[in-house]
Amino acid sequence: MVKVYGNKATRFGFGEALVELGKKDEKIFVLGADTVSSVAINGFQKSFPERFANVGIAESNMLGMASGLALAGFVPFVATYGVFASGRPWEQIRTTICYSNLNVKIGGSHSGLMVGPDGATHQALEEIAIMRCLPKMTLLSPCDAIETKKATMAAAYFNGPVYIRYGRENIPVITEETAPFEIGKAQIMKEGQDVCIMATGTMVYESLMSAEILEKEGINAKVINIHTIKPIDEKAIIDAAKECGAIVTAEEHQIFGGFGSAVAEVVVKNMPVPMEFIGMKDSFGESGKPSELMAKFGLKDVNIVNAVKKVLSRKS
């Protein structure tokens, strides 16, 4: 059985980390954009109003302001829905923040299809692609609330731009408080030799579930949680490719340019093995219930199981 320690939205891990950071460090400054409670930065706002600013519905300005705060020595965190945190101010992030290597941390909430009934406009499914291509950017995509808290803490003490991708819906907590978290270091969730499922964010849980189904069919899958998409843990990927000889990647994000692409870049260069990709197949999301949408767009454990069978048929 997959060990589940509770059910909690990753946004709360982000918000709790900010409050802790605020207590420890006077340099932490938080900016919001009229979505303060929904991205869970209201705790920080309440505790440290003098180091908080709501800039209104003005995300480009928010990233520009964060740049200025970083120039003046603060460690600014901005947060809003992922589409508006990564997409609209993309060029501010590229040219002002990354090109100047400014110490700005970007919280991209409401990632993925699980945003549900608000539909495609609010379902962030492209941030991995458009953030990981940026020089100097570090991209974190934690798998549950506990890991999101650790990722946020780690981001604060890392020098340079960091994007943290998290979500709104309650999802299973599958990591423990004591589990180590290091930027750039993948975490093996389950050992196995037949195939390796590499997953990020919400799909780590689905991958563990799929490994359980596969187990019953006599297929022993290794599952790796890749919470840092950039810089990606090349060694863990190459080792797994050698050990398992076949890889399935899983992400709640577009396949093109996404997490699976990042893994493939490493695999193809170092240890080519057959791969399959689970993710959004070049389409927008739509309105609906989160679980319904995950099934409709093929992002459930059963879809991973099918991808594993497909990839195993090509394994030499």
């Binding site: 609209r88 009934p117 539909g119 406009t121 739509e286 309105s287 609906g288 409709k296």
Partner: peptide, 25 residues
């Protein structure tokens, strides 16, 4: 609802007459 032309924000790709362009951002 899933599959509806009446998306949570107007969606030009769903073919609902009278929706000129997708908005919501």
């Amino acid at each position: 609802q899933a599959g509806s032309r009446l998306q949570g924000h107007p969606a030009a790709d769903k073919g609902l007459p009278g929706v000129e362009v997708s908005t919501g951002s």
